[in-house]
Simulated scan of single mutants.
Amino acid sequence: MAPTDPVLLLTRPEHRSRAFVEICRTRGFAGPVIIDPIIEIVPCPLDMPLDDVPGLILTSTSAVEAVAGHDLRGRRAWAVGERTTQAARAAGMECSFGGADANALVAHLSRERPGGPLLHLRGRHARGDVAERLAAAGVPTHSVVVYDQRDRALGPAAREALDGPNPVILPLFSPRSAALVAGQVGEVRAPLEVVAMSDAVASAWTGSGRLQVAGMPTAAAMAEEVERICDG
């Protein structure tokens, strides 16, 4: 590794980090990559049947993966983001793209007003109050926790990079991961470029470094920011 090669430090779950690396590679990123998830996704037992639920709301691919053992073929669903929409369709659901973020999804369903009640499959740590806001808008919606997001400590490779001489590019995809990483790293020696997926993620970052927000809350827009940083 040359003294000025930027290091891409990814703290998403392993498979999502690898998918993001592939996007960055297609855009020309050739530098070293460290994958060190700050959160472990753990499915939670679902103590209710999904057979009679008219429609599902999915705000992450983790929710789709958590209910993989249920037969949801043909089930009506609405999802946040293209990747979650595609994952739900791959699982056999009749899933519509509801928007790029939770606010867009709530606005979309408030206009569409599908027959309910709807069920939001979510993580234990969730933002956006999707079910509550939809219910207040007249769309009966409940929520159930289908996965947990457990904190993890950053490993030695990540800490070594942050204390080293090379620039580090740190994409952050959720407010919780931003807060967790900031709480663990404090001040760093490496020149640090933080890329936040949204304003909410940026607000949760309390660490050092130069902070920028992606133009859209998508992996493609995040990869575009990585490319822009590398191009100087």
Rank of each mutant, 00 (worst) to 15 (best):
M1K: 05
P3L: 01
D5A: 15
D5Q: 15
T11R: 10
R12Q: 12
P13A: 14
F20K: 11
F20T: 08
V21Q: 08
C24L: 05
P32K: 02
I39Y: 03
P43W: 01
P43T: 08
C44P: 02
P45E: 15
D47V: 07
L50V: 06
D51Q: 13
V53N: 02
V53F: 02
P54Q: 04
I57A: 06
S60W: 09
S60K: 10
S60Q: 13
S60D: 11
A63Y: 10
V67R: 02
V67T: 07
V67G: 05
G69S: 14
G69R: 14
D71S: 10
L72K: 00
R76L: 13
A77N: 08
W78Y: 15
A79I: 03
T84P: 11
Q86K: 14
Q86R: 15
A87G: 09
A88F: 03
A91F: 00
M93A: 05
M93I: 03
S96V: 14
A100F: 11
A102K: 10
N103Y: 02
A104T: 10
A104L: 06
A104V: 05
L105K: 14
V106G: 05
L109A: 10
R111D: 14
G115W: 04
G116A: 12
L119C: 05
L119D: 00
H120M: 10
R122H: 11
R124E: 12
H125I: 14
H125L: 15
R127P: 02
R127M: 07
D129G: 12
V130E: 06
E132Q: 14
R133N: 06
A136D: 12
V139C: 09
S143A: 13
S143N: 09
V144S: 11
V146M: 10
Y147I: 09
Q149N: 12
R150W: 11
D151I: 11
A153C: 11
L154A: 08
G155F: 03
A157T: 01
E160I: 09
L162S: 05
G164R: 05
N166L: 01
I169P: 04
L170E: 03
L172H: 07
P175C: 08
R176K: 15
A179S: 13
A179Q: 09
A179L: 00
A182F: 01
G183F: 03
Q184Y: 07
G186H: 00
E187C: 04
V188Q: 04
V188M: 08
A190T: 00
A190L: 01
P191K: 04
L192M: 07
L192R: 01
L192C: 07
E193N: 10
V194M: 01
V201D: 10
A202P: 05
T206E: 08
T206L: 00
G207W: 00
S208E: 06
G209D: 01
R210W: 00
L211W: 03
V213C: 03
V213I: 15
A214I: 03
G215R: 12
M216D: 06
A219T: 08
A220H: 12
M222I: 13
M222F: 07
A223G: 04
E224V: 06
E224Q: 14
V226R: 01
R228L: 10
I229A: 04
C230E: 02
C230T: 09
C230H: 02
G232T: 06
